[in-house]
């Protein structure tokens, strides 16, 4: 039952639409700016509509080496993709296994392992950034994909989420499987993984976005532009010394940098919402 008051409903819709519009505005303005030439941008106030250059800026950006870097935008996007996918897949794989061991097995030092893993929830990479950098340098993993990916996998968010889900699996299902002659590996493959499909999809969305959007870590460990990510390259384009900021390129890069994760969230919204909200419980 609701108070169905037409006026109030109308106001609500108006406010919501205004909210959506306001939140979209920065992106829209970035997009329109990316379709103007640099001289246009610096002679007029920020344009509200698409300019005459169209998508030329994008074409140029994707085909030529990026300002001040010895590498192309496609390579940067590819690096971001590798990093995001690597983090998402890597986290999911190690978490599926670790959470499985913690929930479905009883073994000595189980509680200790649990705490060793879950204490990592407390300290994000930003806090221990300097020593982590040294460790990665000692392992000769600077300027490499493994250096970009592995340290960011060392957190238990996915393990925690999967543990919560595993705990909701009725114990009788495990017992039935044991009676049916399924050992631990077969139970994992035949029953647990098929049942966690939605949760794994949700995890993938969350971790892909997390990986794609990383900033501080890739900024630190990549000096070779061949391993730089698109998000990090933005700062390089902004720091031009005394020259004017090439906003048409910066906004175009921003649009390109937010494209893939936004696409992922919109396509897999259902899983994402479920994954986020379940993680809280």
């Amino acid at each position: 039952m609701r108070y169905q008051r037409l006026g109030l409903d109308l106001v609500s819709h108006l406010l919501l639409a205004a909210g959506c519009g306001l939140f979209f505005l920065p992106v829209w303005l970035a997009f329109t700016a990316s379709t103007h030439s640099m001289s246009d941008l610096y002679t007029h106030i920020a344009p509200l509509w698409v300019g005459d250059v169209g998508l030329d800026n994008y074409a140029q950006l994707l085909s030529e080496p990026v300002n001040g870097l010895k590498t192309g935008m496609l390579r940067l996007l590819f690096n971001s993709l590798v990093m995001a996918t690597g983090i998402a897949v890597g986290k999911i794989v190690i978490s599926v296994l670790a959470a499985y061991a913690i929930v479905f097995f009883r073994f000595p030092f189980r509680r200790l392992c649990f705490w060793l893993i879950f204490i990592t929830l407390m300290l994000p990479v930003e806090v221990r950034i300097l020593p982590t950098y040294e460790v990665v340098a000692n392992l000769h993993m600077l300027d490499s994909y493994s250096g970009l990916i592995l340290p960011l996998i060392a957190s238990a968010t996915a393990t925690f989420l999967l543990r919560q889900f595993y705990l909701t699996i009725p114990p009788e299902l495990v017992e039935a499987a044991r009676i049916d002659g399924a050992g631990p590996w077969r139970f994992l493959k035949d029953i647990l993984l098929p049942l966690s499909k939605t949760n794994l999809a949700a995890l993938f969305v969350i971790m892909f976005i997390y990986g794609w959007n990383q900033y501080l870590w890739p900024l630190l460990i990549t000096t070779d532009a061949n391993y730089m990510t698109v998000v990090v390259s933005l700062k390089r384009m902004l720091t031009t010394g005394d020259a004017l900021v090439p906003w048409q390129d910066v906004t175009a890069t921003a649009i390109l940098a937010m494209g893939p994760p936004v696409l992922v969230i919109l396509l897999l919204q259902r899983y994402f919402v479920k994954g986020l909200v379940d993680a809280e419980k």
Binding site: E172, L173, A176, I179, D180, I191, L195
Partner: peptide, 25 residues
């Protein structure tokens, strides 16, 4: 063989899959 109180059927398998799982294993 055991019949459980809440049946403990595998939710993602068909009836045939549930019945044949032990034999498959």
């Amino acid at each position: 063989a055991m019949v459980f109180q809440n049946y403990a059927l595998y939710p993602h398998m068909s009836v045939a899959g549930n019945m044949g799982y032990a034999l498959k294993n």
